[in-house]
Simulated assay, not measured.
Amino acid sequence: MKILIVDDQELVLLSLEKYLSDLGYEVSCANNMSDAITLYDELQPSLVISDINMPVLPNSKDTFRSLDYIKEMSGLEIVKYIKVIKKHSVPVMLLSGNYDDSVILKGFALGADDYMKKPLSLDEIANRIAKLIGVHDKKEKGNDDSYRLIQKKCIGVVIPFYDLKQEFFKRDYAKIIHTNLGYHFCFINLGDSNNLEDLEELMVGNEERISLYNCGDSIQLSEAVRLGALHLAKNKQFDFIGFINPDLEVAFKDFDDMVKTISNSSLKFVSCARPTALAIKNGIDILITKGIDFLIRKTLKIELHDALCGAKIMSKEVIEKTFIEKFMTNETFDLEILMRMKKIYGVDKLGDIVYEQPLKRWMSCNNSKVSAVTAIRNFVQIGQIALHYK
């Protein structure tokens, strides 16, 4: 049985193609409507699975005439082509992160047979396919397929590391990559020339979801994050890009919650905030941290309580507008990103597009203390930023 998958996000295409091929289906893929229609005519598939929000290439706009109400949702064009123009009975399943009921109704009005909202599990997709065209007997589904998710959006994450063994100890990347199919993790080496075997082993078969980006020798954290983010921003499939500081022992589930927050809103930037009561026990550390946060709030003029907590997720627009120039500072570059956003969007809008989300699952408190030397550097760097971006 042949299945045609249509989606403009490579991570989705590759994940579905591999999974359904392993189940025994003959799978073909297209990342735009022009190629999708060409492949449909050539292959005559048993089922078409298409995302709603799809690009139509410039040279394909005159291939067929659009209905007025689907010009902005070209994924519905494949439904129209199969059901209205060709008058075929081939089932069409639509996928989308769009929760607008009117979009769903338009798809069904054209003749779509099924609709699934992202995020969705591979297990659920297999069950829906089985109902539409039957089960292939080549291979049974895996026991963990219900936990393997295709996210609503595709996310690129920069992971700088000093010690890869420690980074892998903090987060089980093998499990994370296996179960979260909408993520690509870009690792950047900050000085660990050894112990790369685990990463290289993990990359085998996962090249579309994990990479090692070489920024050169003796690179600082801020520059590694900047170059890594710009590198990921060149890839059109990523909706959002983030980073996790190597000193921050945050659970991946917390980061995924931040992604859900920005995906379901008009926000452009989401930062995390550490649970102070759990992370900081010493009274002096509390005073230092509160002093730093007070200065940051006065500088930004918006309410943030842990702006230097190094886990962030942002739109590609923010990357493209604020990461072009090298950051002045290393330990407080998070603040520089926000100051550049303030200059671009204005302080009033900044408060509407920036959100601070408390962490729920603090893994460890060992790296949360601020030493006196680090505190002094932070105070000095905040002052430099305030003067430079005023």
Rank of each mutant, 00 (worst) to 15 (best):
E10H: 15
E10Y: 07
V12E: 08
L16H: 09
E17Y: 01
K18R: 15
Y19M: 08
Y25D: 09
M33Y: 07
D35Q: 13
D35S: 13
Y40G: 12
E42P: 00
P45E: 08
I49H: 09
N53I: 12
M54N: 10
S66V: 10
L67T: 15
L67M: 15
D68T: 13
M73H: 08
E77A: 10
K86D: 12
K87T: 10
K87R: 14
H88D: 15
P91I: 04
V92S: 10
M93R: 04
S96G: 11
N98Y: 13
Y99F: 01
V103W: 07
F108T: 01
F108K: 07
A112G: 07
D114I: 04
Y115S: 04
L122G: 06
E124N: 14
A126R: 06
K131R: 10
K131L: 11
D137F: 09
D137E: 14
K138Q: 13
E140Q: 14
N143V: 13
D144A: 12
D145Q: 09
Y147W: 12
R148N: 12
L149D: 07
I150W: 10
K152P: 08
V158M: 07
V158L: 08
D163S: 05
Q166L: 08
E167C: 01
A174I: 03
K175L: 14
H178V: 05
N180S: 15
L181N: 00
G182Y: 00
G182T: 04
H184Y: 01
I188R: 04
N189V: 06
G191F: 00
G191N: 06
S193W: 01
N195S: 03
L199K: 02
L199C: 08
E201W: 01
M203Y: 07
I210P: 01
S211G: 08
L212D: 05
L212K: 11
N214A: 09
D217M: 04
Q220I: 06
L221N: 02
A224N: 12
R226H: 04
L227I: 07
G228F: 06
G228K: 08
L230F: 03
N235D: 05
V250R: 02
F255V: 00
K260S: 04
S263Y: 02
N264M: 02
N264F: 05
N264A: 00
S265W: 06
S271D: 12
C272L: 06
L287S: 06
I288F: 03
G291W: 00
L295E: 01
L295G: 01
I296D: 01
K298C: 12
D306C: 09
M314A: 02
V318Y: 05
E320F: 10
K321I: 04
I324F: 11
E325T: 11
I337F: 07
M339V: 10
Y345Q: 05
Y345M: 06
D348H: 13
Y355T: 05
P358D: 11
K360Y: 03
R361L: 14
W362Q: 10
M363C: 13
S364H: 13
C365S: 10
N367A: 04
Q384F: 00
Y389G: 08
